[in-house]
Computed example of a mutant assay.
Amino acid sequence: MRGEAAAWAPGPAQAAALLEEAADLLVLHRDFAAALERCEAGCDSLGPGHESFAEVKCSLCVVGIQALAEMNRWREVLSWVLQYYHAPEHLPPKVLELCILLYSKVGEPQAMLEVGSSWLSAQANQRLPELGWLLELYVAQVLLPLGREEGAEELLRGCAALDAERRRALLGAVGQSRRRAPPERTRPAAAEQREPAPDTVLGVLSQKLLTVLTLLRRALRSMSNHFYLLPYKKMLLATFLLYLVVVRLDPASPTSLPFIYKLVQLFRQAWAAVLSPIHRPPIQD
């Protein structure tokens, strides 16, 4: 199957097939190096002119981040994603979120200081619905652990994406951080030099992400078998539903797992609806 998928024409179809392979290798075979290789090949195949399939590229990067974390190569994550997006402000919200969580978990929030600042200040990102959440995450996981309360207050007061009540609550958290800062931010030198344990690094993306990827693999298998039959609008619909399952879903949320299964059911129903009766694949519960 992998040989046939790799022989597809370059572009979105090939990237979708490589995404399926990467998820399969990561979740089922635990071959993280091979999964990373498929992600890189998929991102390379989505060159200029495929902006409509940015969701597939983002999903490839999500799988690639997980593969790097599994191999305890977390230091390479930021440079790895930036080679495909070229500038911090171009990172998709989900990729930025995972990078913030990862570097915060391993005790290196300073790695995301400039990246997060560039993304949050970019004009193109000001209307994104994820702006408020990413600002909160950046403040909590990057600025406050680094003792940058003044910068956090400035960001919070200037963000139009936050309502007044949420802004007051976050400013209160910044004030509490300032009052308790000295004892909590002092870390022993030995702790700073200690290499993060592999299981700590892997925990940042959560076991639920592996569940998402398993479901993704099944959906993509059906998708890849019929990709060439879909006209452009139907292809976009399938990609959008895939985006709902993988990119817009927070796998760390305690309530996410039932929602994943509901989305997969929705994906199956929509998939059956957009295909003609002649080519409609069987839907199995």
Rank of each mutant, 00 (worst) to 15 (best):
E165M: 06
V56E: 13
C99E: 07
L128F: 07
L171Y: 08
V63I: 11
Q265R: 13
I278F: 11
N72P: 01
A16W: 12
A9C: 03
K233M: 12
W74A: 04
M112K: 01
S206H: 03
L137K: 11
E165H: 11
V245C: 05
L60Q: 00
I65D: 13
L215E: 14
L213R: 08
A252Y: 10
A87I: 13
S121A: 15
S118M: 04
L19P: 01
P254E: 05
V247D: 09
H29T: 14
R280S: 04
K262C: 09
S253D: 12
L244P: 05
G147R: 09
M112S: 03
A190E: 14
A5K: 10
S256Q: 14
L135C: 11
V139W: 12
A270F: 10
R75F: 06
C99D: 06
R73V: 01
R217G: 05
A54T: 06
A6T: 01
Y103A: 02
E76K: 13
Y243D: 10
P196K: 00
T239L: 15
R185S: 14
L155Y: 08
L209K: 12
G3Q: 11
A33W: 12
P277Y: 11
G175F: 03
L82H: 02
A69D: 00
A5R: 07
R217F: 08
V247L: 11
N125D: 10
G47P: 01
Y228D: 15
I100Y: 12
V264D: 05
L202K: 14
A111L: 07
L170Q: 09
A41N: 08
L101P: 07
G203H: 05
L210K: 10
L98M: 12
S52F: 11
F32Y: 15
Q110C: 03
V63H: 04
Y103R: 04
L120G: 03
W74K: 02
E130Q: 15
E136P: 04
R127E: 14
Y85E: 04
P258Y: 01
L120A: 02
